[in-house]
Design a protein around this nucleic acid. Structure first.
Lengths: 150, 150
DNA sequence: CTAATATCAGGACAACTGATATAT
DNA sequence: CATATATCAGTTTTCCTGATATTA
């Protein structure tokens, strides 16, 4: 009686899938647990750093950039506004939009975050990777993006 | 008045950090939204597939393998037991342990999950990657693991 | 007595859906 | 009228912490 044939390659792919499953899960949790430090949630840090590097934006634009619904960024932004880290003003050119920009206090906060390498991902990239490995990582981005493509 | 010096390499690393931030976030969400299909949550699928490939286990061992707390797997397992997909029996050799194994119904369920390529990660690995690219991905695992190391 | 295992109870985080108001 | 933007309210998912009982 013959065993059902399962190629070695298929078995290896299942193993890879399993490793990726654990890796991706661990990544989410690791990222989430970073949130407790420096008093800002991860979405808040992401928004703050994005406003710093790309300038003023809107709820909808931020949502598109982060790949989430506007309502989700809305909550994030509400927290940042309450903390006085970002300021909102109506867009003179389009009355539907509310332009969001970093407040002065936040600029310093972002500088500190970066200078002290408190930005978790940046810190790891600097401390645990050689320039060449960062290059490898950049190359792997294309592959990883296939997991989130529609 | 001189500009403050920020090397091009540092700017590139910040960009890489930002891309990774978005990628990792999108990955978590993509994985989460897969849960709605085939009636099992992701943790449930992970546990089921692990019990299938590695045989009977315990709550604590599963928690270690998945990198979460035993209480988290406990909830997952409770759901699977309620659905009749796994069975529990006291370990004769160690009274503290409860051995978990797939129920008969679940074996078929897992077979179906796999045969039909309903396992999301496996499906993507098979359909969107060449064998050579899967090899590249395996190589990148080492790099990615650095993000979750203590 | 200390360590490991399992489980109960409650809470936090970050996304979601649906509905609504306003401006283009 | 159809589309885009912002926001209110409530829900879901998945993990967490803390406490407790049992066995090694």
């Amino acid at each position: 009686m013959r065993e059902q044939t399962v190629s070695a390659a298929t078995v290896q792919t299942h193993e890879l899938a399993s490793q990726l499953r654990v890796l991706f899960g661990a990544l989410s949790r690791r990222i989430r647990e970073r949130a407790r430090f420096d008093g800002l949630s991860n979405p808040q840090k992401a928004v703050l750093l994005r406003l710093e590097s790309e300038g003023p934006s809107t709820v909808s634009a931020l949502a598109r950039a982060e790949g989430v619904k506007p309502q989700s960024i809305g909550q994030t932004v509400a927290g940042l506004r309450a903390a006085g880290l970002i300021e909102a003003a109506p867009d003179p050119a389009d009355g539907r939009k509310t332009l969001l920009r970093m407040a002065r206090a936040a600029r310093q906060r972002a500088l500190v975050l970066r200078a002290a390498h408190e930005d978790w991902l940046f810190g790891i990239l600097e401390s645990r990777f050689t320039p060449q490995e960062r290059e490898q990582l950049r190359d792997a981005l294309d592959l990883l993006h296939r997991f989130i493509q529609p």
